[in-house]
Write a protein that binds this DNA or RNA. Structure first.
Lengths: 214, 214
DNA sequence: ATTACATGTCAACACCCGTACACAAAAGAT
DNA sequence: ATCTTTTGTGTACGGGTGTTGACATGTAAT
């Protein structure tokens, strides 16, 4: 008795479904056990409710699964960024609102972020590379976003990239702090959030004073 | 024919020597293979030139070895910091000199830093905790160092910690970039170094504008 | 209903793993 | 020189791993 009327979503094929099940299983295991690199193909298959050899129908090896996870993680993040950009900001509270939105998003999707944070440096070369590429791309997008603010008119695009990099470096660290927090600790979360705001404000102050060499 | 006259160093006991050999072997393997968490007790023992069961004479398990590595890594870093602090700085070029010293040090001890960077988020809980503790301690020390500059007179100690945290967050990211560089690429290294300088300068500018709430 | 393809299962393989135990060698103390 | 402690060796065990090839089942198209 599955109602198929309201949604225009097609029922995904069996293949798609277990492919997703495998990716989901991997994310779950990363939460439970240490890291993706430490997972075994068999564990993932088992949790996905599938026999080990079935794994190969969807991915040639664990590395490929990892790359798929990197992709889906950043795809979601990019969408958030696009939406936020489109919505615009109350001008006066860009910092507060941006930080709040981001932190809320991280807390809503802890598994993907945990995966990325953990594999960024300890994963296989292929996965590390993919993540690094995505982050570079993210910095670029942020730089062009910043260039739209009149505040930064006098800053060269190279320097804007540098400042965007600084921002992302710090937000990355904040992400990691948030993920280490216990799930329910609202109190600590507020502290981390406030510190992140202040740090961004310091960067903002510094950027406003910055004079690009001509 | 070992000359023992010049140095006052005692010949370390056999136990100490293989203990060191084990730690060394682990660091080497981290460089070669992916991460410490991915190493097996047997691999480490093999590379240290010792039978697997001998491992237990020195560490109860791999986690203990990891903790020992965390300790030795940060002990060295703290010493560098102490020396630098004692030496003082040419005032005018604090940023440039600090960054240069640090980067030189990272490049001189890549194995320890790589270990820390990789295990910081993907290691076992015990190791992650130890690293986090050390970094927090490092931030504190930096904050009190900063408090000695007249520039920061008007900043509360809480805010100084916040700024120190920002600095460390960014230098951490720089560390990671440097470690990803190929060993011989002087050119890229200069770029990373310059960007790091600029970023620290932005933070410095921002900090100078910062007014602590009373 | 038959055919073709996609997906999943089963059994087996050779390998590496952590660890327990009993024993041998080396180092240090008396 | 003898005894004790520390350190290293050899063997063995049960268990998890990735990957193989041949086979079964489901699913969609003709």
């Amino acid at each position: 008795m599955v109602s198929e009327t309201a949604t225009e979503q097609r029922r995904p094929s069996r293949g798609e479904r277990t492919r997703q099940a495998l990716m989901n299983a991997a994310l779950d295991q990363v939460d439970r056990k240490g890291s993706f690199s430490g997972l075994s193909l068999r564990q993932v298959a088992r949790r996905a409710g599938v026999v080990p050899t079935a794994f190969y129908r969807h991915f040639p090896d664990m590395d490929a699964l990892g790359l798929a996870l990197v992709d889906s993680s950043f795809r979601a993040l990019r969408q958030l960024m696009r939406e936020t950009r489109r919505a615009g900001m109350p001008e006066k509270q860009v910092v507060r609102e941006s930080v709040a939105t981001y932190v809320r998003y991280v807390r809503a999707n802890p598994r993907h972020f945990r995966f990325v944070v953990k594999e960024r440096f300890s994963g296989s070369p292929a996965i590390r590379d993919a993540i690094r590429r995505e982050i570079r791309l993210f910095v670029s997008e942020l730089a062009t976003d910043l260039s739209r603010f009149p505040l930064f008119d006098r800053i060269s695009s190279d320097d804007l990239r540098m400042i965007a990099g600084l921002t992302v470096n710090n937000m990355t660290a904040v992400t990691e702090q948030i993920l280490e927090l216990p799930d329910d600790d609202q109190e600590e979360e507020v502290l981390v959030l406030r510190e992140a705001e202040q740090q961004l404000r310091v960067i903002l102050l510094g950027a406003m004073q910055w004079k690009s060499r001509e």
